[in-house]
Computed example of a mutant assay.
Amino acid sequence: MRRAFVIAASVTGGVLAYPVAGVVGGLIPSNAGWAPPERGITIYIESNGIHTGIVMPKLAAGVDWREDFPARDLVDPRYGALDHLSIGWGERNFYIGTPTWADLKPSVVLGAAVGSDETMVHVDHVPRPAPDGEVRRLVVRPAEYRRLAAYVRASLVPGGERHPGYFRYDVFYAAHGRYSAIHTCNAWVGNALRFAGIRVGAWTPFPGAVMRWFPRYG
């Protein structure tokens, strides 16, 4: 009984400590000395309340995303004419098996939290985002943009699986990386920004830990 109590207490303590650690990690700055340039490449960080993603122009700073994410991969290639991409990363079963929140199953959430080596990059072909409460706008230097692009490209499995998205303008691509409660979709966004040299939280498992670092757009 004592052993069972110790195990239960440890699990409970871990569950309770996780959100606190996530908030604290999101408050500690990485690249603390970074400041946006007066001129540069405009990118956006967006959130749906659960996931965050990075919205980038298809052509900027010598980066051409049209070769990585061609229009022919879309159900409707006409959306390939749009000039921005929204890019996120996450667990395969969670992504593909949850087209709407009504489809969310506890088993999928638990499986993702415990850990999964099956991950995917989700790419939407979109126009430039309009001002919105869940969108943040920031300006980065060309070199920072190229590092951000390098991080995204390193997450892709060359020649890997392509899976149709939820709509006619999005696609899933096989990705590298292990998803877990530590390395979440939001942590991936934070890691990408940190790798680029942009100021963001030291650990960003939750959307708020990412979004808080950037001013509202509009």
Rank of each mutant, 00 (worst) to 15 (best):
H183W: 11
A130Y: 05
I87W: 03
P158Q: 11
D103E: 09
G160Y: 05
S116F: 08
V114P: 06
A181L: 15
V157T: 13
R178H: 14
F195W: 06
A154F: 07
P106E: 03
L148I: 09
V123A: 10
A149K: 07
R78D: 14
S180K: 03
R141H: 10
V200E: 02
A154E: 15
P129L: 12
A192E: 01
I198L: 06
E161T: 14
D117Y: 07
F94H: 08
R153Q: 15
S116C: 03
G80V: 11
H122Q: 13
V157K: 15
W89G: 00
P164F: 09
G115P: 06
S116V: 03
P127V: 13
Y145H: 11
S107G: 01
E91G: 05
G115D: 06
F167M: 14
G160L: 08
C185Y: 08
G88F: 01
G111R: 10
V140E: 04
T100M: 04
Y79H: 13
R137W: 02
L156N: 10
Y173W: 02
A130S: 07
C185K: 02
Y166L: 11
S107I: 06
R153M: 07
N186K: 04
L148W: 09
R92W: 05
H122C: 09
A187F: 00
P131I: 12
V152N: 05
Y179I: 07
H183Q: 07
A143P: 00
C185E: 01
G160V: 10
L104R: 13
V121F: 11
V200K: 00
E118H: 15
H125M: 03
I96L: 12
F167R: 15
Y169E: 10
A112C: 13
S107A: 12
R92F: 06
K105R: 15
P127D: 13
E118Q: 14
L110V: 15
F94M: 07
S180T: 15
S86D: 09
C185L: 08
L110S: 10
A81Q: 12
S107T: 12
P158T: 10
L104F: 13
V139T: 15
W188R: 00
V200M: 06
P127T: 14
K105G: 01
V152T: 08
V109Y: 10
